[in-house]
Computed example of a mutant assay.
Amino acid sequence: MDIKKFNRDGMIFTILLMATVVLVVPLFRYLNFIGVAIWLVLFGITMYYALSVEKQKKTHDVQTYREIIAFTEGKKLDQIEKSCEIGKRPYQKAFSVIFSALITLVVTIGMYFYLD
C-alpha cells in the first residue's frame, strides 16, 4: 500500500507541478486577479502533494533517484549501496533545485514572449 500511495501522490504532484509552471503566464495575463487566485489555489494544492511526497520519502528513508527506484520496485539497497547514496543526497538536492528553477525560468520566459 505504501508503494501505491507513493506512486499515486508522486504522479499527482508531477502533473500539478507541470500545470503550475505552464499555466502561470496565461492565467495572470488573461484572467488578471481571478487568474492569480486560480493559480494560488493550484499552487497550494501542488505544495500539499509536494509535502506529502517528501513526508513519505522521509518515512521510508529514500531520497536519491536510486533509492526511490528501488523502493517503488519493492527492493532494498544493501548497507554499502545505502551509504553511497546517503553521500550523494546533498549534491542531488542542490542539482534538482537549480535544474527545476532553470526549467521554470525558460518555460515562463518562453510563454511570455510567445503570448506577447
Rank of each mutant, 00 (worst) to 15 (best):
I3V: 15
K5I: 02
F6V: 04
N7R: 15
N7V: 10
R8T: 09
D9Q: 14
D9H: 14
D9A: 12
G10A: 07
M11D: 08
F13D: 00
L17M: 10
M18T: 13
A19F: 11
A19W: 12
T20L: 07
T20F: 14
V21M: 03
L23C: 10
L27E: 00
F28Y: 12
F28S: 06
F28Q: 02
F28W: 09
R29Y: 11
R29G: 09
Y30K: 14
L31V: 07
L31Q: 08
N32L: 14
F33M: 13
I34K: 13
I34M: 15
G35T: 09
V36S: 06
A37G: 06
W39M: 06
L40E: 06
L40C: 13
L40F: 14
V41I: 14
V41N: 04
L42Y: 05
L42A: 04
F43M: 04
F43A: 03
G44C: 09
I45C: 00
I45D: 01
T46L: 07
T46A: 04
M47I: 12
M47S: 12
Y48A: 06
A50I: 07
L51T: 07
L51C: 06
V53Q: 00
K55E: 07
K55D: 05
Q56G: 02
K58N: 08
T59D: 05
T59Y: 11
D61H: 15
V62A: 02
Q63K: 14
Q63M: 10
Q63N: 06
T64G: 00
T64N: 01
T64V: 11
Y65D: 03
R66V: 03
E67N: 04
E67G: 00
E67M: 03
A70G: 07
A70F: 05
F71K: 02
T72D: 06
E73W: 12
E73D: 15
K75L: 09
D78C: 04
Q79V: 04
Q79F: 08
I80F: 15
E81K: 15
E81W: 14
K82F: 05
S83Y: 10
S83G: 11
C84T: 15
I86Y: 15
G87P: 01
R89I: 05
R89H: 03
R89V: 03
A94T: 05
A94G: 05
F95E: 03
F95A: 05
S96W: 11
V97I: 13
V97E: 08
V97Y: 12
I98T: 07
I98R: 10
I98S: 08
F99V: 04
F99I: 02
S100F: 11
S100R: 08
A101E: 10
L102P: 02
L102H: 08
I103W: 06
T104P: 01
L105S: 08
V107N: 06
T108R: 08
T108I: 04
I109Y: 13
G110P: 02
M111T: 04
Y112H: 07
F113P: 04
F113E: 10
Y114N: 08
L115I: 09
D116T: 10
D116I: 11
D116Y: 13
